[in-house]
Design a protein around this nucleic acid. Sequence first.
DNA 1: ACTGAGGATCAGAAAACCTGAGGCTTTGCC
DNA 2: GGCAAAGCCTCAGGTTTTCTGATCCTCAGT
Lengths: 271, 271
Amino acid sequence: MPVAPPPPSDLPLNGLRAVEAAARLGGFAAAAADLGVTPGAVAAHVKGIEALLGAPLFIRDARGVRLTEVGARCLPSLTAAFDALGAAGHVLRSEAAPMRLSLACLPAIAQLWVQPRQDALLAAFPGLSLSITALEQPPATKRHGFDVTLFFGPGQDWLMPVAAPGRVEGPCLADAVWSGDWTTWRAGAGPAFQDRPTGPVHSLYALAIEDALAGRGVAMGRLSLVAGLLSQGRLVEVGPRVAFDQMMIARAVHPGRTARAVAGWLQRELS
Amino acid sequence: MPVAPPPPSDLPLNGLRAVEAAARLGGFAAAAADLGVTPGAVAAHVKGIEALLGAPLFIRDARGVRLTEVGARCLPSLTAAFDALGAAGHVLRSEAAPMRLSLACLPAIAQLWVQPRQDALLAAFPGLSLSITALEQPPATKRHGFDVTLFFGPGQDWLMPVAAPGRVEGPCLADAVWSGDWTTWRAGAGPAFQDRPTGPVHSLYALAIEDALAGRGVAMGRLSLVAGLLSQGRLVEVGPRVAFDQMMIARAVHPGRTARAVAGWLQRELS
DNA sequence: ACTGAGGATCAGAAAACCTGAGGCTTTGCC
DNA sequence: GGCAAAGCCTCAGGTTTTCTGATCCTCAGT
């Protein structure tokens, strides 16, 4: 009697999700972050799937993991499947509560741009139930439950130093994420402010702007984010504008009545 | 400081699977059977999803469940997603072990048709690792891990009473599932064997055939299943053949080298 | 050689999951 | 009308799965 091997047991869904995330992101740690668990959990899931299949899907070495041949051939269908699942989840959510909407954006955008427009947005969409989540990175996939994203993408914006009126002499204020903005600006405007001391470096851009508002120095402003404060006179431009190749972009992650309408409204506000 | 994202709570995969199964099969009990759990577990999963969504997906009444409007709009994308997942799982399995193949068929087919041909099949596909699973019903979806199915479907076959040579006088043997075959045959051949007592009724067709082989009575044979025994002379036909509108059909559940080849081989054996 | 990133491993703890019994409502059938 | 059969619901309890947190290991770059 030849072999009558194992039963055709189904593969655990959560395990497949771990495999897909690890393959897509190129590492267990990244996958773990994506899934909101620890790397150990991802490793265990992947190991479980590999055991069920009887073949390794990843080659481990000290600096990460790579897909095996077999794994690489499986990735496209896995990704397609989880994209479909994400879409299905989205349909469920939007059908169940059409006026509930979740927006993902950078912390700086949330505080400086969305916050001041929130009342207008809610007035434009009566009944809208809005939740705003600040993320450092735009969600990598369409599976994260967000309806609309608002992040920087390719486009045209302006950089210029800003300070509170009459308080233009303080140190240079910067934040950790966009510290490169000063460099970019100087490349276009020359070595201005070179002699200034560097002030506190915040983890959040909005905190640097707060410091500038409080007269504690000069911040590097992205026009789209500080235009409101400039027109209110709470900040003034203290140097030339320099073109910047990133701009805010609002997009609906999945097609859906409300999401599309809100993304359109935001995009209109942007221009 | 990495922002701690308040998770945009993803929907649990197992819950979605329960919802999809219940929606597709029209009942929690059926879904439970499909998923291999108890109805209570399905109910709990569905309830969990409904709670997360904040809207009911099913209307319960005493004779089962129906989808709500919302649920009905969600079903297509859910089904598509789980079909995609099933396909992905299948790719994984076949990539990991290309020569491993699992066949699903009726118990009667397994015992009377597949078993005698197993050596020939393995000879035709060297290295094939075959597992055979007997199911009363063909798997309803493509998600059950089977590579090839072999069941009765629309087509042309023959029914006729069979018995061991020289032992044609015993009672009518029948099995529980195909007891209708006697009725069908009499409808075409007239009231023959009406006066015979009814012998033991087995749960498995193959047991009725065993009884016939042992000379304990007359069984109603489907030609495709008993042809081998007839040509060996172990059974003889003891009445006219009557046309029957179901025949065995082999099909590959998912496209795949081995599955397609084996299904083709089986189909060729059938004709 | 030191350091840091990324994995593996393991035990304990937490969460999710399943079962099994009992109850309720409706339908179909004497 | 009374009765049985289907289905679904709830709940308690236990079991399995899953996650974490600490520790160790390996490798690459400095």
